[in-house]
Write a protein that binds this DNA or RNA. Structure first.
Lengths: 361, 361
DNA sequence: GGCGAGCTGGCATTCGCATTCAACCGCGGT
DNA sequence: ACCGCGGTTGAATGCGAATGCCAGCTCGCC
């Protein structure tokens, strides 16, 4: 018989007071538990549990008594203990990397918001280097998260590890591998093709590209589909310089392009908006080149600063809100029914014909 | 005697295989526990626990055997169960509101990074409306977080509630109330006084202010200290219009000011950088006013876009990195020793004499 | 050879809640 | 009067790891 229960059944006497006093000193603070509520309400602990569990059977009178007692003693169910017994933590892990990219904060906020509407909390993990993934993964699994949303690359072994643990994964803007995970992504190929087509039709011929980090699949997709579409339209010699998604790398990217070409190109395609902005600033400030009159620049993402009047970027905006909603919905479905097969959803980007490129229309 | 232990001591036979099979079907998946490791290693569960607990006494041989067994069965300590018994979740809650402000994402990333270096995970809570605080607070407490960092306002009752639960709190850019919480903040008064002084000394006389939301203490501090310093320097009639920290509200703010004054002022003091940027864009685009030649604009925060060449804001940059480090350090100290009194640390901002204002130097 | 100190490892218990199982209470049907 | 059924309630058990306590063992020193 649990000691606590015995104590609960013992009528309060002087000794109890002393014990309480000692407890206070030893531990930081005895938390009030469902047993405390039960004692005050004069019912069993199971009854308390039932009242606090939605959809459990309990009479109206029982509910009232328990709730009154709970309020009186300041009871709050312990989510940790609940998680241990129900095998469900009601937490999902969100993995984000590359915070230089303005796009991620928005994503994160939306995800948190959306999950919270479903009673689920977000445990946040950020990556400084790709190499950290393994240790972060380990952490997530130890915390028994119910699901994982990742905007970072996971390799086959990592996905397999998670799958083995029976935790559903949703990849954000990453292609699903081996059908081990669900995925939500923006159709970047189509977006880039649109940008390229518009630029070529408007008469641009000398193209340059500022790519993102080499290990970013997003960048690789964007860059290669731009190169490919250019080739289709008869443009072969495209200068490609590397960036890291940051403003500064956009500036340096433009300088590198100008140097490599011995002068400015007709158009620069940046792998994201922030680099496009850097590129525009460098062109204007350092080479005194008006944008878009002498140089067209396009980006990708549609982040906040893209629409600042000074830039007014021509870009493709990702439908972040719809994408996060889809991510959350898909993950929740698979948490409820782990048998459900993974799914991939692809959203078209919104074409934004801003003022940073000379287009026909 | 626990059934599991009995099973553990029973030598494996045909029946075991069947049971495992059945288990697989019934529950989603029997997680491998320390008992499993113990069985494989031929030691007790407590031994396994000790090996996985840093600083516990265990012989070298024991460590090896246990670790080998653990790797073999793919064991991973369950952080939830550990949290239940140790009364420590190794999670802190971070509360963020107002995501229109570019400043918060940076803060959040830094905090997560810093906490992770100390083996602590961040449970993220975002606020859409102030009214949500109470329910969010309840969530945090249920999840037994070890500490709370909040960049949102908490009132006296809310702070008292947390204090009662024995959870240390660190306020970010908020003044500590009643000594119930630690606080880290940037000396915004001093920052604003510097901005104002510089502007006045450079000859500006007609001033306007774009404030943040009324319920933002940060905005109130910034705005009122600017007004006060202006008064000290003999400038009384200051136009103040309200904004919400967003780019758009900066644009609208400038329009409102121009309308109210019947023309542009000499200088605009915005309560944050993003509104300053909006203000500059509106002035340039809609009124064809060159900045800083015809109009000086200053901001606050020192967020990324503030240093974009098109704006090159004159502003005060918050030392985010030092502030987050201080926040984390203070919170961890108080988690380790709850008796420690709260503390308030104030950091001076970095004065950035950019190019969006005409200053003497 | 004997004895005490210092480790080690095992047993049993505990954290707080959910859930199973059995008991129980009415109540309507036969 | 008896049976059975739906609806409640309480006692007991278990989730998975940490830990106090004790027994056993090793080692050293007299």
């Amino acid at each position: 018989m649990p000691a606590r229960l015995a104590w609960g059944l013992t009528p309060g006497d002087g000794c109890t007071g002393l014990n309480k006093e000692a407890d206070h000193q030893k531990r930081r603070q005895r938390r009030t538990t469902s047993y405390d509520v039960a004692r005050v309400a004069g019912v069993s602990q199971s009854a308390v549990s039932r009242v606090f569990k939605a959809g459990a059977s309990a009479s109206a009178e029982m509910r009232q008594r328990v709730q009154a007692a709970a309020k009186k003693v300041g009871y709050r169910p312990n989510a940790i203990a609940r998680g241990l017994i129900t095998q469900r933590s009601n937490m999902v892990a969100v993995v984000i990397s590359r915070m230089t990219n303005l796009y991620y904060p928005e994503l994160l906020m939306q995800l948190t918001r959306e999950f919270s509407h479903h009673g689920i909390r977000v445990l946040l993990f950020t990556l400084e280097h790709e190499s950290e993934i393994d240790s972060v993964l380990e952490q997530m699994l130890q915390y028994q998260v119910d699901g994982i949303v990742t905007a970072a690359m996971l390799n086959r072994e990592q996905l397999a590890l998670i799958d083995e643990a029976g935790i559903p994964v949703a990849l954000y803007n990453r292609r699903s591998r081996d059908g081990l995970a669900s995925a939500v992504r923006c159709d970047q190929e189509e977006g880039e093709r649109w940008l390229v087509t518009q630029l070529v039709e408007a008469g641009h011929r000398r193209f340059a590209i500022i790519s993102g980090p080499e290990d970013s699949t997003v960048s690789v997709e964007r860059t290669s589909s731009a190169v490919q579409k250019l080739a289709e339209l008869g443009i072969q010699d495209v200068t490609v310089v590397g960036g890291d998604y940051s403003y500064q790398s956009g500036r340096l990217g433009f300088a590198a392009i100008a140097k490599q070409l011995g002068g400015p190109p007709d158009a620069v395609i940046a792998a994201n908006d922030v680099m496009a902005i850097g590129c525009i600033d460098a062109a204007r400030q350092e080479c005194n080149l008006p944008v878009p009159d002498a140089l067209s620049v396009v980006g990708f993402d549609g982040v906040g600063p893209a629409s600042y009047a000074a830039y007014n970027l021509t870009t493709v905006k990702q439908p972040v809100e719809r994408m996060t909603q889809a991510t959350v919905a898909m993950l929740l479905e698979r948490i409820r029914d782990p048998q459900l097969p993974p799914e991939e959803r692809i959203f078209a980007g919104t074409k934004v014909a801003g003022g940073s490129a000379r287009l026909l229309t």
